[in-house]
Design a protein around this nucleic acid. Structure first.
Lengths: 201, 201
DNA sequence: CTTGACGTGTAACGATCGTTACATGTAACG
DNA sequence: CGTTACATGTAACGATCGTTACACGTCAAG
């Protein structure tokens, strides 16, 4: 629609990508965008509207980029979880993912402020990751494990910037799953006491 | 030393535990503590000094509580990672861990503001977790994997509050490691092509 | 030419921020 | 008693916050 608002939204995203959400203020933002706080309110109605537009754009970028990943046919050697990791840590997506995680953390502590921007983030995560696990006779807990591994390693990547080590750790996890699957199929039918299962609801 | 300052520090911690760091303001805080912003500055010199005292107390609590865990002899059936998880998610420690993770996230985006409060958080984490992994012929990446699993699951616990599922997922991970170790010792010496290593830069 | 929507600049509003000035109260100690 | 250190209350400072009032310019449509 309005080209001016879209220009501003795009510049706004760039600003948030580098400065984060938690200390956003209109006047410094406007100064860096070469405009004024007055104009930001004019175009976005309020700070909340401005954040809403930015978060929408962020979600849209991630959804779009992830769709592109899903459309491309998977290279044969690479496991889906690793492929997802490569996508998330790619230069074009990493800042967006950082912003998404920051939003998630802020929303956990201040849902009244940041909760509204948390549109259902299963942009594809879940469906994509669902097919990662053997999914054999395991339950939902097993399915959430790769996501947790991803989250934890991504968190560490954000803190340390050590992409090499985090990527290796992810590969280790993938190996672990593979080995466990092999082990499970080799020791064929000894039904294997699963110790900690407690009979969930 | 000063009893008054310690009283305030303790009440301050309780406040931060429930309200978080990112939106802390002196006057609302003082109101809930039954004192005034004037007094907070008087005792802590500045807002930064106040945060420093609070973060010190937080780190002290965690260090102390973790030491107690280390001193108690480990129950035989429970894996160290699970034991650490149980400790971290216990009612008395969970709010402190939440606060620690919040600090970590804020420091990642605004190191100039929150970095100073990030005293070397290896209060025992690392040494404790070091002994978790088989540690056989594996490298540092493998050692960081349990920490990442812990982080990811803890993150999810914070967001969803679903302690049951996250705990189960942790148990799944432990099983995975066990199975992989079994598999590795059964298929004794076939050195196992590690497929996905790519030779990083 | 007039109208009206869009965009913009200047300036201010009231609220809240961290912080400080100044006065005062209390209690231990010489 | 007088002094001194700690603690506290009342007010205000200047800065910054999100937001608004008001005026002005541009430019296509009638």
């Amino acid at each position: 629609m309005q080209t001016r608002k879209e220009e501003l939204t795009s510049a706004l995203i760039d600003y948030l990508l580098t400065h984060g959400l938690s200390e956003l203020s209109l006047r410094p933002l406007a100064a860096e965008l070469g405009t004024s706080a007055r104009l930001l309110i004019y175009h976005f109605d309020s700070k909340e509207g401005l954040l809403a537009a930015a978060m929408d754009a962020m979600h849209a970028h991630l959804r779009h980029s992830l769709q592109a990943l899903a459309d491309a046919q998977a290279p044969k050697g690479i496991k889906p979880l690793r492929r997802f990791w490569d996508w998330a840590t790619a230069a074009e997506n990493l800042p967006y993912m950082k912003l998404l995680y920051e939003l998630q953390m802020l929303a956990a502590r201040h849902p009244e402020t940041y909760g509204p921007f948390l549109q259902h983030s299963a942009t594809g995560w879940l469906e994509l990751v669902k097919r990662i696990m053997p999914d054999d006779e395991r339950d939902a807990a097993m399915a959430s494990l790769p996501i947790a591994v991803f989250d934890g390693l991504f968190l560490e990547l954000m803190s340390t910037g050590d992409r090499r080590r985090t990527t290796r750790a992810l590969d280790r996890f993938i190996e672990l799953v593979e080995q466990a699957r092999l082990h499970r199929t080799e020791t064929v039918r000894k039904p294997r006491k699963v110790s900690t299962r407690k009979r969930g609801t």
